[in-house]
């Protein structure tokens, strides 16, 4: 099979070489060499192909916008989400216009000015006025975008809630662990040297840590209640990416990073809205972290305060977990 493919390719190449020879020879017979530069006919053909191409390009873009509109920026499910989406849409409209207009002008210039025999180009080397225009106009537009963008950034990135749910999101190859601060609302301290089989997070044996609640696989949040994520990493850099909430932050070994946001739509509501029974908010890893980077996930359930409190009561504290584990080891 491989031999067959290779032979076919070789024969194909030889055939083209022969064809090229014939082409060059016949060109010589027809009266000297072919024109090195593009001829008038070639330039006209290429110019019109350019125009056609720009039509295709704009059509292709429009088709994609239409085809994928349901998947683009899934509905924002956080308080700050709409602000980011508005900024995005504003920017997108501006850049799509710039893209389309420059390409239309480009195609127009190409079709208007392709090479014709006996025509001479206009000698036009510079114009301070024109250059001033296309320095100042982009500068003005960008100033607007910078101011707008930075306003949103300042609103989004600095934690400011009075009494948020504090959750530590802990990453390692290749899963996530969430730790809630417990009754005292304080996350107990940890030390990576204390990590062992029964103590995944390296928690110290202190009261602040003992009432913490540790969960894997899925975590729960409350609708309209701010949550302050504190991120830690055990081994390499990961990135906690929650696309529906417009949240992303790297998790870095040796330092704590943070992101605060407020979920605004419960999982249940989102399931109804999307008509997808199995819909779940997810945390993805979005910084290359090793072999199973593509499958490092955790579900996020957003629910009402009552549902959340009920779920919380069912969870064991860190102290209870330790007790269960040691009881089990004694039995064994």
């Amino acid at each position: 099979m491989t031999f067959l493919i290779l032979t076919t390719i070789a024969l194909f190449v030889i055939a083209i070489v022969r064809l090229m020879n014939v082409y060059d020879l016949s060109a010589e017979i027809r009266g000297g060499r072919t024109d090195d530069r593009a001829t008038e006919g070639e330039s006209r053909n290429m110019a019109w192909l350019w125009a056609l191409f720009v039509v295709w390009l704009l059509g292709f873009l429009a088709w994609q916008f239409f085809e994928y509109k349901d998947d683009l920026l899934p509905r924002a499910a956080s308080a700050h989400g709409p602000a980011i989406d508005n900024l995005f849409n504003t920017t997108m409209v501006i850049i799509t216009l710039v893209f389309a207009l420059t390409h239309i002008v480009l195609a127009y210039q190409i079709v208007k000015n392709y090479f014709r025999n006996g025509r001479k180009a206009t000698y036009f080397a510079h114009s301070n006025k024109l250059e001033l225009i296309w320095t100042v106009v982009p500068a003005a537009v960008l100033t607007g975008l910078i101011v707008y963008g930075l306003t949103v950034w300042d609103d989004v990135i600095y934690p400011k809630a009075e009494d948020p749910i504090v959750v530590e999101l802990y990453s390692k190859q290749f899963d996530w662990t969430a730790r809630y601060a417990g009754k005292d609302k304080v996350l107990g301290k940890s030390d990576y040297r204390k990590i062992d089989a029964g103590n995944d997070l390296g928690l110290l044996n202190v009261p602040e840590a003992n009432d913490d609640i540790i969960v894997k696989g899925e975590m729960h949040l409350v609708k309209d209640k701010p949550v302050l994520f504190k991120f830690r990493s055990r081994d390499v850099i990961h990135s906690a990416y929650l696309p529906h909430f417009r949240v992303q932050m790297n998790t870095v070994p040796g330092m704590e990073t943070a992101f605060e946001f407020t979920p605004t739509i419960t999982t249940e509501e989102m399931r109804k809205e999307t008509g997808n029974e199995k819909f779940n908010y997810v945390i993805l890893c979005n910084k290359i972290c090793g072999t199973s980077h593509y499958n490092m996930q955790m579900d996020v359930i957003v629910e009402t305060q009552e549902e959340y409190d009920k779920w919380m009561r069912e969870q064991q504290t860190w102290r209870q977990k330790k007790a269960t584990a040691s009881a089990e080891s004694i039995i064994q």
Partner: peptide, 27 residues
Amino acid sequence: TLLVAIPSAVKVFNYITTLWKGNIHFT
């Protein structure tokens, strides 16, 4: 970062203006 767009825009418009009233050989 966004400032980079200004000199970049200048370059693009200058390229397009170079085509204006040219006699373009499409090699």
